[in-house]
Design a protein around this nucleic acid. Structure first.
Lengths: 220, 220
DNA sequence: TAGATTGTTAATCGATTAACAATC
DNA sequence: TAGATTGTTAATCGATTAACAATC
């Protein structure tokens, strides 16, 4: 089993699985909602019960991100856990992003206030429609897509968000990569090709709809 | 190994894994894009290369949804595959849905044209803001949320789409369930509780952002 | 102390990946 | 025939789940 061995012989995996990373926002949200009592303590067992995860799973997840061990009979200090998870997820250092495709979905994302909580900051948007150039949505300016590669680096954007139609997505992706982004959040229903080291995170609603539809089929 | 044994002794799994279901829209999209040559044939090997899946995986997936076997040296008839996948996903019988929460994201979904392709039809929307009652977006009427439970059944909606803030999501979910939906597409960042038999499909952007942010952390 | 909670180790499960035999 | 493609079987991998020993 892969892992690093630290001083006292304990063994910790080198990286957290994607699924485990996906669980982190749920822990964070739950812990933050405890709010008032946030100078208190909480046990992994309680978290597991509330979120319907297995206890061992929660313990493993927390052991990985937590800077300190939980105390037997007491649990973890809530405020410490919150800090540790936010640090692990990098929410303390906001990630700058540019968005391409200022249609309905693109504008909805530009207007969404909640990204602050997730350390995401959309700094500008781009669209191929010249009528949109110079317009604003959610307080962010929309530029013509021809300015993308130039502005991307100057804006210091590390994330590109793609909300264009499927047929245009690969072209946009290439521009984002040459503009210097290191991760792409792709809402278009296509598999994008990128050089190694660039992360593609697909938010493909077609996937979700496939699961929903399949479930309804089975219920007939 | 679980499975049913059919006449000729071949063994086929009873259900397709969630991951496999998620791959279906990619197959479908790719096959449809072949367009012009769609009275032709295609091999699983070609599909695998194009979509960057393993050959065996593609074969297993296609064997499950395809009504007929592929022919050695020839492959599958494209139009047959398209029909089979659309049938498997239930895209030939549109699923009626109601949406709750006509904010930016809710409106974006109401205005999105692409759902036709995925067999989803949003028939109405609901919001707690009385100023929105009677308004329209994407050609669909917005009703006050107090009418939800009554209208849900009458509209024959089987899917409920939740685009309200996190704190309101569970309440909305309960209404949808008592209104008779059998599946919930949840955009709020919370784990919803539902009775057995109801499917919850989470579209939690916080999960994706966690992965993006974690990747950028590691690149530093 | 007894017991709640911790972290760890081993077993199970399921999907992916690789290797192979069958078919036209 | 030789070879491309098929479907199947076995090996690998990794995550979840269960069981357990350690700690205050």
């Amino acid at each position: 089993m892969e892992g690093i061995i630290i001083d006292d012989g304990a063994r910790v995996p080198l990286t957290l699985s994607q699924q485990a990373i996906r669980r982190m926002p749920y822990y964070l949200k739950y812990l933050k909602n405890l709010g008032a009592s946030s100078d208190g303590y909480i046990s992994a067992s309680t978290i597991a019960t509330e979120l319907r995860f297995y206890e061992g799973l929660v313990r493993k997840d927390l052991a990985f991100v937590s800077s300190i061990s939980g105390k037997p009979r007491v649990g973890f200090r809530i405020s410490d856990l919150i800090d540790d998870i936010e640090h692990f997820l990098g929410y303390d250092i906001p990630n700058r992003a540019i968005l391409v495709g200022a249609g309905h979905l693109g504008k909805a994302l530009m207007c969404y206030k909640g990204f602050d909580d997730y350390g995401l900051e959309i700094v500008a948007a781009f669209d191929s429609d010249k009528k949109l150039s110079g317009k604003e949505a959610g307080g962010k300016t929309i530029f013509h897509v021809s300015k993308l590669e130039n502005l991307c680096g100057r804006l210091n954007a590390r994330i590109g968000i793609i909300t264009v139609p499927a047929y245009a997505a690969q072209g946009v992706c290439d521009m984002l990569v040459s503009g210097g982004v290191m991760a792409v959040w792709n809402f278009a229903p296509v598999q994008l090709n990128v050089p190694g080291g660039i992360l593609i995170q697909n938010e493909n609603m077609a996937e979700s709809l496939a699961i929903l539809s399949n479930h309804l089929m089975e219920r007939r």
